[in-house]
Amino acid sequence: MILVINTCSEELHYFEFVKPVEEVLRSIKVECKVRHYNELQKKDLIAAEKIIICGTSLKDFQYLKDLKKFSFLKSPDFEKPVLGICAGMQLLCLAFGSALEKSREIGLTDAFFGEPFFSIERKAQVYSLHNSAVKQSKALEKNFKVFARSEHCVQAVKHLQKPFYGVLFHPEVRNRQLIEEFAKD
């Protein structure tokens, strides 16, 4: 079972940022369970084989005020595969000491992959929707390998030791195979 974590502070945003991820998983017959991070319980994390942390809207920054709710990510014994999408990637990187910077991308963007990231390689068109991005810095590179960048910012990372993946773009809109590959990997 994959635990899908909702980061949206407005209920109406669930349909835009979480449900499409659920639909991708359902289309490949992978069981999933959705929890908002405010309702997340230890038993949810124990029951999950993998975790996807979804994104939220351009104007929603509440998740940045609730970083403590994601402290499980930096627990030394937490090793389950995690895919962070947009806000989810930011939360992953923030948990390991990275910082954010202002970076706005809205719509289709070219991302350049230095190495294959799941099956995406070289140049790929991705769908971006963000006002901030993870800053490329020593703090980021201490824990994560950067796999892709767009003209403006880091687009894909993987933790150096743990199976933690982050994408700033929205694979539920373009590049759905990334979610499928993470789910089946």
Partner: peptide, 19 residues
């Protein structure tokens, strides 16, 4: 385009039928 307009107008944008 609608997202960009809402963003610049400091408004939330909701697309409940998205995808």
């Amino acid at each position: 385009r609608i997202q960009a307009i809402c963003n610049s107008a400091n408004l939330e944008c909701f697309n409940p039928l998205w995808q």
